[in-house]
């Protein structure tokens, strides 16, 4: 009886181990790492954008999605339409709530091929999930909403602040692990702020692990001084601008006058 009980215990333990192994096969080992080469981008006088490369290690055979975003924000944009049936002009303002100012999404494959809809919406991966996340007002129906969401993406892509790509993440296998790497252009249009880099490891249509890094973009030197003065001391900034303009105007006038140009 006791022997039988011991055997059944061993069988039970074996079943539990097998079940755990089966479950484990759907989860990446906790090896996902992320590193952004530029975690601090200073905006100085000669700044014309930068590059950010994201690299790290993941479990072999996992698909990856790399998302770089600004925090959710609010944006008001002029909405063009036809007035009097044929004249294109601004007809009003559309407000976009929960819209990040910057949104880059890169995948080893297209997100919709490797992730289920539930996970895409949960982690806001891809433009369709962004469509569900952003609030647009005022719109009268879903059709109109979709139209203005698509226009919003086109506007953001034209400003180089939104981009989506697949197949551009380079992966190599090393010692049973997968090394990944991608380099993206960092647009000068991206304003100062803190940006979040999130890498998602994907298996069986689900996010199994994620890792995060930060990129801080900050004004520095003369740019910071002038921007601060314009915001915090507008009167002095205005007077300095006027004096400088008058000085240059008179200066050039006198130089040309001396050379005989003005006579």
């Amino acid at each position: 009886m006791n022997f039988k009980f011991q055997i059944s215990n061993h069988i039970l333990a074996g079943i539990v181990i097998v079940i755990m192994c089966v479950m484990y096969s759907g989860i990446a080992s906790a090896e996902l790492t992320v590193n952004a080469n530029h975690d601090y981008i200073p905006i100085d006088f000669f700044y014309h954008g930068s590059t950010v490369s994201v690299s790290g290690l993941s479990d072999a055979g996992t698909d990856l999605i790399i998302k770089i975003t600004a925090p959710d924000g609010h944006e008001a944009l002029n909405q063009k339409g036809k007035a009097a049936g044929f004249l294109w002009m601004n007809l009003g303002t559309l407000k976009f709530e929960h819209a990040p100012n910057l949104y880059f999404i890169h995948g080893t494959k297209k997100p919709e091929e490797i992730l289920n809809a539930e996970n895409m919406n949960k982690y806001i991966i891809g433009y369709p999930s962004m469509n569900k996340h952003i609030e647009i007002t005022p719109v009268s129906n879903d059709e109109e909403r979709t139209k203005w969401f698509n226009e919003f993406i086109r506007y953001k892509e034209a400003s180089r602040l939104y981009t989506a790509s697949s197949g551009q993440i380079k992966t190599t296998n090393e010692n049973g692990m997968q090394k990944y790497y991608i380099q993206t252009d960092w647009p000068y249009q991206a304003p100062p702020g803190e940006y979040l880099v999130t890498v998602y490891a994907v298996k069986n249509k689900k996010v199994v692990e994620k890792a995060e890094a930060k990129v801080t973009v900050e004004q520095a030197g003369i740019v910071k001084a002038l921007s601060g003065m314009a915001k915090n001391n507008g009167a002095l900034y205005g007077i300095i601008s006027i004096i400088a303009a008058l000085g240059v105007g008179f200066g050039v006038g006198m130089i040309f006058g001396k050379d005989g140009g003005a006579h």
Binding site: A245, V248, G249, V252, G257, A262, H263
Partner: peptide, 18 residues
């Protein structure tokens, strides 16, 4: 408008001289 201040100063000066 700031650059017009400079251009019109320069232009006014040139025209005032003559």
């Amino acid at each position: 408008s700031t650059q017009i201040v400079a251009a019109s100063t320069s232009g006014t000066y040139a025209h005032w001289k003559v």
